[in-house]
């Protein structure tokens, strides 16, 4: 589904991702962990197509197509979804109106006509229940006045509505209390399927207690320095990142 080969990227003339490789197959859940400043957020921004980030080398292939050639909206329409670390507040744009526009533009891209109003409302109702999002929140302006937890739930709600094939969760656990974390993780777990893959970017292991990954990778200074199964996350939790840093320095 997603193949990243020797990706190099940065911002404002500073290279942050320095030869990154990853292969994500359909249905897999990959966790990318790493200390602050290792390049986790840069990676998610580059994959989503944020224009401030400059790709200086490497290849990214998404379902056989060159992802790096695509605008952010085309990436989304092709099935890529980024759950933002800091969801943006957009006063005056209602969640519902925004999602309706998004769905219909994605459908138009695929050559399908707009969704019927009643089908859309049914979809919204169903997906709201998935993340226990209050009906009134869906009608409000995008993220305006939402608490940290509500914002993250809204991200997962949007993901549920848009049904991407690859979802990148960028530190979705940050700023969540344990109840909100459980709700968000349950939402994600319900969306797991053999056709849908996830990249879960996180600093802490605790999210991975709820969203159990197939693979765990450790990102340090822009490259993956260690990969393993879910037990690697537990090891990191126990020993901290210094252990990895030491290994890298020694190697």
């Amino acid at each position: 589904m997603l193949t990243i080969k020797n990706l190099r990227a940065g911002i404002e003339g500073k290279e942050i991702i320095k030869g990154f490789n990853l292969e994500v197959k359909a249905g897999e859940v990959h966790a990318i962990m790493g200390p602050n400043g290792s390049g986790k957020s840069t990676l998610s921004n580059v994959l989503a197509g944020r224009e401030d980030y400059i790709v200086s080398g490497g290849e990214v292939s998404f379902n056989g197509k060159n992802l790096l050639d695509m605008s952010p909206e085309v990436r989304a329409r092709e099935g890529l979804f980024l759950a933002f670390q800091y969801p943006i507040e957009i006063p005056g744009v209602s969640n519902i109106n925004f999602l309706k526009t998004a769905i219909n533009e994605i459908r138009a891209y695929k050559g399908i006509g707009p969704m019927e109003a009643k089908d859309f409302l049914k979809l919204i109702k169903e997906k709201q229940a998935l993340v226990e999002l209050q009906g009134s929140l869906a009608g409000r302006s995008v993220n305006e006045g939402f608490s940290g937890g509500e914002k993250k739930r809204n991200e997962i709600f949007q993901m549920a509505v848009l049904e991407p094939t690859l979802a990148i969760l960028d530190e979705t656990d940050s700023g969540l209390d344990i109840d909100a974390l459980r709700i968000v993780a349950n939402g994600v777990n319900k969306l797991r399927s053999e056709n849908r893959s996830f990249i879960v970017i996180t600093h802490y292991q605790r999210l991975l207690d709820y969203i159990v990954p197939d693979f765990v990778h450790v990102l340090y200074d822009g490259v993956i320095v260690k990969s393993g199964g879910k037990e690697l996350a537990l090891e990191l939790e126990e020993k901290g990142y210094d252990w990895i840093k030491k290994e890298v320095v020694e190697a």
Binding site: A76, F84, I90, V93, F98, T101, A102, Q158
Partner: peptide, 17 residues
Amino acid sequence: FYLRARGLGIESARKLL
């Protein structure tokens, strides 16, 4: 960028904003 990352074209995202 947030709106575009959800699939809205740049023109409709601008208009919406």
